[in-house]
Computed example of a mutant assay.
Amino acid sequence: MVNLPWQSTNKRSLKAVVFRYATSLLEMAVCCAKPSYLLEVAMEKFYWYDECVNCHQGRLIITEDITNKRLYLHCEECEYGWLDPSHAGDVGDGFLTLLEEFETQNPSMEVIRKYGWESFARHEFSE
């Protein structure tokens, strides 16, 4: 048989035990609650073309090169890129993005349309 805390206590100490446990639960709830600023973060949408032909693991995400003002396909796994989506099936036409010097950002669908790449935005995901 299990001895519970209130089995060997009087009513006054039972109130103290219940109060102590209730206080602990309240502290845990407050401590573990997500701050409101985390709940209001918007998910960012990414557009991607196809599976990477170089590594066969990553997605070719449409990425904006803001330094050279162009779009390219960027593999999220092997870091390979292609400037022309119609050549994304040829590994020899790709380049290792880590060896290039440029700044990037995730383009919106509006930017993708501006560059005429909307037909290459076949899939999407949010993070």
Rank of each mutant, 00 (worst) to 15 (best):
K11C: 00
G94T: 12
P35L: 13
L71G: 08
E27Q: 10
E51N: 09
R70V: 04
D65G: 00
R122T: 13
R70K: 15
E77C: 08
W82P: 01
G92W: 05
K11P: 02
V17H: 08
C32T: 09
I66A: 02
L83F: 12
W82Q: 01
N3G: 05
S119I: 11
G89R: 11
F125R: 10
Y115E: 05
K69G: 07
C78A: 02
R113H: 13
R122G: 06
G116I: 05
V30Q: 11
L96G: 05
A33T: 10
T23Q: 08
E118V: 04
G81Y: 00
P107V: 03
L14K: 07
H74T: 04
V18C: 10
K34Q: 13
N3C: 12
L73W: 06
M109Q: 01
N54Q: 13
S119T: 08
E76L: 06
S13Y: 00
Q105K: 15
E40W: 13
P107Q: 04
F46G: 00
A121S: 08
R70D: 07
A22N: 03
I61G: 03
L98Q: 14
A88Q: 04
E103R: 14
L26N: 02
L99W: 15
T63S: 08
P85T: 02
S36N: 10
E27T: 13
D90W: 01
V91A: 10
A121D: 11
C78M: 01
F120R: 04
L38R: 14
Y115T: 01
I112W: 01
F19I: 15
K114A: 13
H74N: 15
V53E: 04
W82G: 02
K15L: 12
V41H: 07
F125W: 10
L26W: 03
D90R: 05
R113C: 11
W117L: 04
S108A: 03
Y115S: 02
W82D: 04
Q57C: 07
V41K: 15
W48S: 13
E77M: 05
C31Q: 11
C52K: 07
H74A: 09
N106G: 02
V41I: 15
V2Q: 14
G81W: 03
E64W: 00
V18Q: 09
K15P: 00
K45Y: 00
E103A: 13
S13I: 01
F120M: 03
C78F: 04
L25M: 02
V2H: 12
G116R: 01
T104R: 12
R20V: 15
N10R: 06
L39N: 07
K69H: 10
M1L: 07
C52W: 04
D50F: 09
M28G: 06
N54C: 14
D65L: 06
C31N: 11
S119R: 15
C32I: 08
Y47K: 05
A121M: 09
M1C: 03
N54A: 14
E79W: 08
K34T: 05
A29M: 07
G81L: 04
L73N: 05
V91T: 08
T63C: 00
L39F: 02
F102H: 11
F125V: 12
F19M: 12
Q7I: 06
K34S: 14
